[in-house]
Amino acid sequence: MTDTSASSPDLDRAIGFTIPARHARGRIARLGPVLDEILAAHAYPQPIETLLAEALTLTALLGTLLKDAQGQLTLQAQTSGGIVSLLVCDYQDGALRGYVQYDADRLGEVADAPSLYALFGKGHLAITFDQATSNERYQGIVPLDGDSLAAAAESYFFQSEQIPSLIRLGVRRTVGGGHVAGGLFLQHLPEGEVGRDRLHTRLDHPEWEHVATLGQTAGTDELADPALPLESLVWRLFNEEEEVRLLAETRLAKGCRCDPDYIAQVLAKFAPEQRAEMADEQGNIVVDCAFCARNFPVPVDTIAA
């Protein structure tokens, strides 16, 4: 693999790669305008913006693992007593969306850069892979332990799939007030990758220790640098390896499935009497989308027709 360069900012895309001799695979993603578009729907304070930016980047890294284009990856962090009561992000075919519910008064009582425990307390992280073609669903739930979402996600893969993983996330503000977020996801696969029990993969495997050590050198300055092409970043990290294979890229976009036609289709599944109870005095059922912070009034008679 050779180094590459680009004259335009490298944003809103993800690529995959493998290191065959080390039995490792990875993904790297970077968000820019897509991130700003999602964040613009809500007037989040800075700590919540950073949290959601990291969560969306993590969602992009994990979602692009899906081989089924119509499959969906959902990341949900929840607590019953934290500042953040709910964080939800999902990915489908390159489209990202996410939002956060939080207590503004309690957030104002903590430091400008609250810890993960300060935000969630004893919360938990649920990661769900839905395969549309096979109708299979895989879900794992782990405590929100550690000092970051990345650490909690690493625990998910080790506890749920016995796969040692490394996740690095970085977010920074641009001079113009926008956001850039980047992430790196590395995994050590069973030797041969196919037909071998995953329990044979060990955290102290020398090949994994080598790859993880290299991956840990990736910092925010590189991950969230739009002037550094993703391919070049992979080359910087692993240029001394015997072979690094780049995989197809995925373009990322803001995606929310809250268009009026889709909402009407969902409401049509309710019985007519139920729809009548939902309607307001003007005869509309008003549906609120938490992801894009918009209200959609749908006339009942339109649904019935």
Score class of each variant (00 low, 15 high):
181 A>P: 05
83 I>H: 14
290 A>K: 03
246 L>E: 01
122 K>P: 13
9 P>E: 01
140 G>D: 11
26 G>D: 10
174 T>N: 07
160 S>N: 10
284 N>Y: 07
139 Q>K: 03
300 V>G: 12
213 T>G: 04
178 G>Q: 12
106 R>C: 08
290 A>I: 00
91 Y>W: 15
142 V>Q: 07
171 V>M: 02
197 D>T: 08
176 G>A: 05
299 P>D: 12
223 L>M: 06
234 V>E: 01
103 D>M: 01
293 A>T: 04
98 G>Y: 12
224 A>L: 13
68 D>K: 04
116 L>I: 07
240 E>A: 04
187 Q>R: 05
34 V>H: 05
200 H>L: 00
163 I>C: 07
149 L>G: 03
142 V>L: 10
21 A>M: 13
255 G>W: 01
18 T>K: 01
148 S>Q: 03
214 L>P: 02
303 I>Q: 14
152 A>Y: 10
202 R>N: 09
10 D>S: 11
38 I>W: 00
65 L>V: 13
135 N>C: 01
3 D>A: 12
191 E>P: 06
41 A>C: 11
44 Y>C: 14
191 E>Y: 03
39 L>K: 00
237 L>H: 07
181 A>E: 03
302 T>W: 05
208 W>Y: 14
78 Q>F: 00
164 P>A: 10
188 H>R: 00
14 A>H: 08
231 E>W: 00
274 Q>N: 08
24 A>H: 01
22 R>F: 12
185 F>I: 08
290 A>L: 06
289 C>N: 01
217 T>I: 05
27 R>S: 11
291 F>Q: 10
194 V>L: 15
54 E>S: 01
38 I>N: 10
74 T>N: 06
233 L>S: 00
202 R>K: 15
295 N>H: 14
217 T>H: 01
67 K>Y: 13
131 Q>C: 12
281 E>A: 07
83 I>Q: 13
266 V>N: 05
265 Q>R: 09
120 F>Y: 01
218 A>I: 08
72 Q>Y: 10
297 P>M: 06
117 Y>R: 08
232 S>P: 08
28 I>K: 03
274 Q>F: 07
100 V>I: 03
44 Y>G: 06
151 A>E: 15
278 M>D: 02
214 L>Q: 08
69 A>E: 14
123 G>D: 06
259 D>C: 13
60 A>V: 13
213 T>L: 05
99 Y>P: 15
179 H>S: 13
189 L>H: 09
196 R>S: 15
292 C>G: 13
19 I>R: 03
139 Q>H: 10
157 F>D: 11
33 P>G: 15
275 R>T: 02
41 A>K: 04
115 S>K: 06
81 G>L: 00
250 T>M: 07
36 D>L: 08
44 Y>I: 00
301 D>N: 02
122 K>G: 11
